[in-house]
Simulated scan of single mutants.
Amino acid sequence: MSQTFDLFWSFRSPYSYLLTPRIVDLCRDHDVICNVRIVYPIAVRHADFFAQADPLWAPYLVKDTYRTAEFLGLPYRWPRPDPVVMDPATRTYPAAQPHIHRLSHLGVAAAEQGRGLAFIDQVSALIWNGHTDNWHEGNHLANAAARADLDLADLDAKIAADPAHYISQVETNQADQRKRGHYGVPLMVLNGEPFFGQDRFDQLKWRLEQKAVL
């Protein structure tokens, strides 16, 4: 019998990107199903979050994400453009967020078609692997969606027909994320037990082994 776990995940999170290939391998090699739950990044949920953060937070994030990518053998660079638009003068984030809102709603639409994991795998690589500037232009997103066996125009059309539904789904995911015990991403939840952070993946596997799933 398949074992399902929830994955609360954000397109702006480098750690979400760095985790995703391992989740893909896990689900490919074992009878495990990942239920992708897209959330908005903390910068969108709390626009002044980074303005109030300790000044050591951002430099360590940069060092750690590059180190983690090197350790995992994954290509990595901060996206160009950033999926979240920031006001550099105030280090706050305006309500209008054309990239992250579209990406998040596309992720929800893909998950509803049963292709959520494939979609976040392809699109996060496009955004974060450093090979593509202006990932939001031209055919880049359409090609990534196609690699996930999805049609970008079809996903966009579904969202345009009922935008409130996709906003509501993200908000539901965010509420459920907190109910599961954390607010950050990536958050894996197996049978109600939360595993926060890409560095908890091995503990998730250990728990699955205990349940004789792996």
Results as ranks from 00 to 15, higher is better:
I42W: 04
I42T: 10
A43T: 14
A43C: 14
H46M: 07
D48Q: 12
F49L: 08
F50T: 09
A51G: 13
Q52N: 13
A53L: 11
A53P: 11
D54V: 04
D54H: 13
D54T: 02
P55E: 01
P55R: 03
L56I: 09
L56P: 04
P59H: 01
P59V: 01
R67C: 02
R67W: 03
T68W: 05
T68L: 06
T68R: 06
F71P: 03
F71I: 09
G73V: 03
G73C: 04
L74D: 01
L74Q: 01
Y76P: 00
Y76M: 00
Y76L: 03
Y76T: 00
R77C: 05
R77P: 06
W78C: 06
P79G: 01
P79S: 00
R80N: 14
R80A: 11
D82G: 03
D82E: 06
D87T: 07
P88E: 07
P88L: 00
P88V: 01
A89Q: 12
A89D: 08
A89I: 07
A89F: 02
T90N: 06
R91D: 04
Y93H: 05
A95I: 11
P98C: 02
P98Y: 00
H99F: 06
H99N: 06
I100C: 00
H101M: 05
R102M: 09
R102G: 10
L103Q: 00
G107K: 02
G107Y: 06
V108T: 04
V108R: 05
V108S: 03
A109Y: 03
A110T: 10
A110S: 06
A110W: 08
A111Y: 09
A111G: 14
E112V: 09
E112S: 05
E112W: 11
E112M: 10
Q113S: 07
Q113F: 06
Q113N: 09
Q113I: 04
G114P: 07
G114H: 09
R115V: 13
F119Y: 06
I120C: 15
Q122V: 14
S124A: 15
S124I: 09
I127S: 15
W128P: 14
W128F: 15
N129K: 00
N129C: 03
G130E: 08
H131W: 15
H131Y: 15
H131V: 14
H131A: 15
T132Y: 11
T132G: 02
D133M: 07
D133W: 11
W135P: 06
H136E: 14
G138C: 12
G138A: 09
N139Y: 07
N139I: 11
N139K: 10
N139T: 14
L141P: 05
A142K: 10
A142R: 08
A145R: 09
A145D: 13
A145K: 09
A146F: 07
R147H: 08
R147N: 05
R147S: 06
A148R: 01
A148Y: 03
A148M: 02
D149N: 14
D149I: 03
D151M: 02
L152G: 10
L152D: 07
L152K: 04
L152W: 10
A153S: 12
A153H: 10
D154H: 07
L155N: 00
D156M: 09
D156Q: 14
D156K: 11
A157Q: 12
A157F: 08
K158Y: 10
K158R: 15
K158W: 12
I159A: 11
I159M: 13
I159R: 12
I159P: 12
